[in-house]
Nucleic acid binder design. Structure first.
Lengths: 111, 111
DNA sequence: TTTGTTTATCGTATAAAAACGATAAATCAA
DNA sequence: TTGATTTATCGTTTTTATACGATAAACAAA
């Protein structure tokens, strides 16, 4: 059992869920806050701040990158990450759009 | 290993992540859409629409309820669910607030 | 070239989520 | 009371996520 039924839902539902998923861990919320606040964006800086091992931080960064929320460039041995605002703003817009369309039917609630 | 570090983050980060988590599955997005659209809000109606077994739908409903996004009243053998707009609107506001405060530091990006 | 620094990846272990059949509980209808 | 209907919960299995040590890779500096 436990066969993934994820792709039996609409593309919109899958996309919205994927966006929510990448922000569903406090470490990844915290990383986004560090990336916004700091000028540096270096991975080691994040490791200093978060209560997690370097390997774990790197894994979270990879997920944020795969989802498109951040982008990174390698600078020698260091790697610089920052928020991809184009993607981030589009995804937030979609997320808010979903919420707005829910709200349109607000009066129909039964309880 | 894999000891949960979740509660080593700030309460705000945990709350935002918890909200994102409950919407991180397409089934739960779909349920919210059904609850907004339909007048009935009965569990069986959701089972009809989603490609999931009744037990699974009931489980997803429980998670949405635990997070406060929906509320339910029992009507005889049936149970009626609907969106708790007071909670939903507050959580969306918090989520957007986080995004806005990220955006305030937009100019500081390095890549 | 050698050494040190930084980060990504591999392998692995544990925890949590997802899914469902079976069943219990609650109520309505006959 | 009996039977049908509806939903929640239990128990279990499978999958995915989380976490980290160890190590490889890539480069800077000596």
């Amino acid at each position: 059992m436990a066969i993934a039924k994820t792709n039996e839902f609409s593309q919109q539902e899958q996309d919205l869920a994927a966006f929510a998923k990448v922000l569903s861990h406090p470490a990844r919320i915290a990383i986004m806050k560090v990336l916004a606040k700091e000028n540096g964006c270096i991975c080691g800086r994040i490791v200093e701040i978060l209560p997690l091992a370097q390997a774990t931080v790197s894994q979270h960064l990879k997920e944020l990158k795969n989802a498109g929320l951040i982008k990174g460039t390698i600078e020698g041995p260091k790697s610089c990450y920052c928020i991809d605002w184009l993607v981030m703003e589009r995804l937030m817009k979609d997320f808010n759009g979903m919420f707005s369309s829910l709200q349109l039917q607000k009066e129909k609630s039964c309880c």
